[in-house]
Amino acid sequence: MIRSIATTVAATAFVASAAMAQDIKPAVVFDMGGKFDKSFNEGIFNGVSRFTEETGIEFGEFEVTAEAQREQALRNFARRGFDPVIAVGFAQAPALETVAQEFPDTRFSIIDMVVDLPNVQSIIFKEHEGSFLVGVLAAHASETGKVGFVGGMDIPLIRRFACGYAQGVKHVNADADVFQNMTGTTPAAWNDPVKGGELAKSQFDRGADVVYAAAGGTGLGVLQAAADSGNLSIGVDSNQNYLHPGSVLTSMLKRVDVAAYNVYKTAQDDSWAPGLQVLGLAEDGVGWALDENNADLITDDMKAAVEAARAGIIDGSIQVHNYSDDNSCPS
């Protein structure tokens, strides 16, 4: 009797789920900054969590803590039947290339890097466009005409942030000085807030009064140093304005949350497609953050200037050079 009820319940549940949208078993592999870096990885986490809240479909997750784990984590998810699998971060590309070939029927999406395989969707962002906008804001907010940039690991992706930012600053004030620092050359550079703070202080010592951090967890130290010394900072990836209200000028938004959400959503309604997706200002993939925490810092003039720049970039009248095109920066 009991068994027959259980079977009936199970059968009903099965019919019910099959009647709804296609059932998927998604997974995500975070990168070394960690799920709660208040920045890049956390944005992804927010996106996939939103999917779970809306659909009730749980996702498998893994936080990579050592280089060698990336390939294992991706392979484990694929072997256990997870589909689609999101690989977070540029550093997972080599691992994904291997694993995606081993599991040609599993759908993979990689964020921040291009992997050219028939079952891989590559999502990259035009960070230089968003960085250009916050550069415009920084130049307007700076009183000394000197602004700073603190990057995490020294890689072309982060140089793209730096280069777009410098162009935005120079677009407003051609004589401005842009100090640039990278925290390190290993993935540990994403998680060294003490060094980040020290780099920011070295820029304040040289006269900078606005600093833009594109450095994952390291950036928290940069924002803290700016708040401690009464200078302005610019957050990155997620909206970080709330961390130090009145000190964080704005945040360069990279809508990884939307991208991650869309991966699962499209997989669910079967419209997921492999290939390259490039998300820029026009696609609302990047942007700048305005909320109650920084409303007092952004004047109407600044708002007008940044909206003009945004419109200019979208209609093509302002060309933002992409560092990754030729591995060099004009300014």
Binding site: G34, A188, N191, D192, P193, V194, L220
Partner: peptide, 16 residues
């Protein structure tokens, strides 16, 4: 000093 003076929170591996 690392977590309460130089910065304002503990972050994993912050002794670097």
């Amino acid at each position: 000093y690392l977590s309460t003076a130089q910065s304002a929170a503990f972050i994993k591996d912050m002794s670097a």
